[in-house]
Amino acid sequence: MSSPGKTRVAVVFGGRSPEHGISAVSAGSVIAALDPDEYEVVPVGITRAGKWVLTSADPRELAIAERRLPEITPATGSAMVLPADPTGNGIMVLDPTAGPSALASVDVVFPVLHGAYGEDGTIQGMLEMAGIPYVGSNVFASAAAMDKEFTKKLCAAEGIPSGPYAVLRAGMTLSDADRDRLGLPVFVKPARAGSSFGITRVTDWADLDNAVAAAREIDPKVLIEGAIPGREIECGVLEGETGGAPEASLLAEVRVVSDHDFYDFEAKYLDDACEYDIPANLPDRVTAQIRDYACRAFTALDCAGLARVDFFLTPQLDVYLNEINTMPGFTSTSMFPRMWAAAGLEYPKLVNRLIRTAQYRGTGLH
Score class of each variant (00 low, 15 high):
residue 135 V to Y: 01
residue 57 A to V: 08
residue 57 A to E: 11
residue 333 T to H: 08
residue 117 Y to C: 05
residue 102 A to T: 12
residue 284 D to Y: 09
residue 216 R to M: 03
residue 355 I to K: 00
residue 101 S to Q: 15
residue 343 A to P: 01
residue 50 G to Q: 14
residue 353 R to F: 14
residue 111 P to Y: 00
residue 159 G to Q: 09
residue 215 A to W: 09
residue 209 D to F: 10
residue 225 E to K: 04
residue 71 E to V: 15
residue 87 T to N: 13
residue 365 L to K: 12
residue 192 R to M: 13
residue 75 A to M: 11
residue 156 A to Q: 12
residue 108 V to F: 07
residue 13 F to L: 07
residue 232 E to K: 01
residue 204 D to M: 04
residue 100 P to H: 03
residue 167 V to M: 08
residue 232 E to T: 08
residue 212 V to D: 03
residue 72 I to A: 04
residue 61 E to P: 04
residue 125 G to D: 00
residue 213 A to E: 15
residue 200 T to N: 01
residue 147 D to G: 05
residue 130 A to Y: 03
residue 272 D to E: 14
residue 209 D to R: 05
residue 153 K to D: 12
residue 339 M to A: 03
residue 120 D to E: 05
residue 113 L to Y: 06
residue 176 D to L: 15
residue 47 T to L: 02
residue 288 A to W: 13
residue 251 L to R: 11
residue 11 V to C: 03
residue 181 R to A: 08
residue 238 L to Q: 04
residue 320 Y to F: 10
residue 61 E to S: 09
residue 198 G to F: 04
residue 281 N to D: 14
residue 208 L to T: 06
residue 250 L to T: 05
residue 8 R to H: 09
residue 167 V to H: 02
residue 345 L to P: 10
residue 263 Y to H: 02
residue 75 A to G: 10
residue 29 S to A: 15
residue 357 T to R: 07
residue 289 Q to H: 10
residue 27 A to D: 12
residue 183 G to T: 12
residue 83 P to T: 05
residue 206 A to W: 14
residue 356 R to D: 12
residue 362 G to P: 12
residue 193 A to Q: 14
residue 301 L to H: 05
residue 85 D to P: 06
residue 213 A to R: 11
residue 27 A to N: 10
residue 230 G to W: 07
residue 212 V to L: 00
residue 158 E to S: 14
residue 62 L to W: 12
residue 231 R to I: 08
residue 221 K to A: 10
residue 292 D to W: 07
residue 68 R to V: 09
residue 156 A to S: 13
residue 189 K to T: 12
residue 335 M to W: 02
residue 339 M to G: 04
residue 257 V to Q: 04
residue 289 Q to P: 13
residue 297 A to I: 12
residue 44 V to T: 15
residue 15 G to K: 00
residue 339 M to Y: 06
residue 211 A to M: 06
residue 346 E to H: 09
residue 176 D to P: 10
residue 13 F to M: 06
residue 77 G to R: 05
residue 100 P to G: 03
residue 50 G to P: 07
residue 237 V to M: 09
residue 146 M to L: 10
residue 229 P to V: 09
residue 109 V to K: 00
residue 251 L to V: 15
residue 180 D to L: 13
residue 45 G to K: 03
residue 177 A to P: 08
residue 98 A to Y: 15
residue 102 A to M: 13
residue 204 D to C: 08
residue 147 D to L: 01
residue 22 I to S: 04
residue 215 A to G: 05
residue 34 L to T: 11
residue 89 N to W: 07
